[in-house]
Amino acid sequence: MASFRLNRLFNPASGRALDVAVDHGFFGEPSFLGGIERMSHVLDVLVEANPDAVQLTMGQAAKLQSRPGRHKPALVMRTDVANVYGNPLDEHIFSHHLPHAIEEAVRLDAVAVCANLMQLPGRPEIREANILSIMELRREATRFGMPLMIEPLVMQDNAAAGGGYMVDGDLDKIVALVRQAAELGADLIKADPCDDIAQYHRVIEVADGVPVLVRGGGRVDDRTLLERTARVLDAGASGIVYGRNVVQHENPAGITAALMGILHDGLSVDAALALVSEDAR
């Protein structure tokens, strides 16, 4: 039954999806608000750009779903909140999922919900908290036919990252955590790119049929972003979940058009880059 909702996430021709994540305000970090200070304006831009989905929190989802008409991005709802990104970190680190998250997602007509599975060096209690959340979410998601997207995050030691935890691109660690996400019953997996993109097929293989959508991470230049996108798709990824690389772009509509061109129309990187400039005119 969960597949019924996923029919609204994945493009029927390409079988792929672009989910633009704008749930960063949930984590309470001032530095995360760049480009998304006025969410109503952000959603005006994104609805016009028309990616396949927008990832929002329960508190912001109504700003998308209250808009009239059928032709707008689908909603993916973030279900958990944590304080692992602070610089400096708080003394007490936590991660909690929302009570009744699945019921809220049903009421808000989401196509999927998203929850973290974090591996933080020296903090196994956070991974335990995530696993407990995922098990509870899995139970309710099955009951209501709501697809569950699990987000395996392998993080560097906070000292190496200069304060808050940052992504670790170690392929072996990513593969192991992606496999755990599959074992926990993920309908979708939102995974990091690895340091050596040529080996990304290993992530797809270990997911073994669970669609993998690749995270975007920090801002990079357009060519780097589009080339990486093409390579993970060639490796077998079913889509991408990009946030800052879209909403902090000087031309969000143009970069969305470029990404959608690669995802759904098989455009080359050069042809997709031309769309960024074309849309800016």
Rank of each mutant, 00 (worst) to 15 (best):
D170V: 04
N116Q: 14
G145T: 10
F27N: 07
Y165L: 08
A110Y: 01
Q55Y: 08
V214D: 01
F4C: 15
K190E: 03
E37C: 13
D90N: 12
V212C: 01
G86H: 11
D80F: 08
G164V: 02
P124W: 07
P30Q: 10
A182I: 06
V84Q: 05
I150L: 07
S133W: 02
L56V: 04
V212D: 02
A274T: 07
S40Q: 15
E250I: 14
G25C: 04
D172M: 06
A61V: 07
S95T: 09
P30C: 08
D195M: 15
F32R: 09
N7W: 12
A186W: 00
A257N: 07
V84C: 09
A186L: 00
M77V: 08
A182C: 07
V111Q: 07
E136I: 10
D195A: 15
I240M: 09
D208E: 12
L9Q: 00
A237S: 06
I197W: 06
G28W: 01
R143D: 10
V246K: 02
I255Q: 03
N251Q: 10
A17L: 07
L98H: 10
A198G: 15
A74S: 11
A191D: 00
S40Y: 11
I36R: 05
A253P: 14
V241G: 01
R138S: 09
V167C: 09
L225R: 01
V220S: 10
G209N: 05
D23I: 00
D208L: 06
I131G: 11
L171A: 08
D196C: 13
L132P: 08
A159D: 15
V106D: 03
A274Y: 02
F27R: 05
V210F: 02
V246S: 03
E29Y: 11
A258C: 05
G163W: 04
A74R: 04
G216P: 09
L137K: 01
P99S: 13
P121S: 06
L188H: 00
A272I: 04
G35R: 06
L120G: 04
Y165D: 02
V203P: 00
T142S: 11
R231T: 12
A198D: 12
T224Q: 14
H100I: 11
G243W: 01
I262P: 00
H71C: 15
A82C: 13
V106L: 14
M77C: 08
V111G: 04
L117P: 03
L108D: 08
R143F: 15
A160L: 15
I134M: 05
D170F: 08
N130W: 08
A176L: 08
I36C: 08
E48M: 07
E183S: 14
K190D: 00
G163T: 05
D168V: 02
V42L: 11
N158L: 07
V22S: 01
L137N: 02
F144S: 15
V154P: 00
T79Y: 06
A237D: 00
A62K: 13
E136W: 06
G217L: 09
A198E: 14
G185W: 01
G216R: 01
A105D: 07
S66Q: 13
P99A: 09
E103Y: 15
A74C: 11
D222K: 02
A141G: 09
T79S: 09
A191K: 01
D234I: 09
I150Q: 05
E125W: 14
D90H: 14
A2T: 14
A181N: 01
Q156G: 06
E128R: 12
A272P: 02
G122I: 10
P68A: 15
G218L: 14
A2W: 13
V20C: 04
K190P: 00
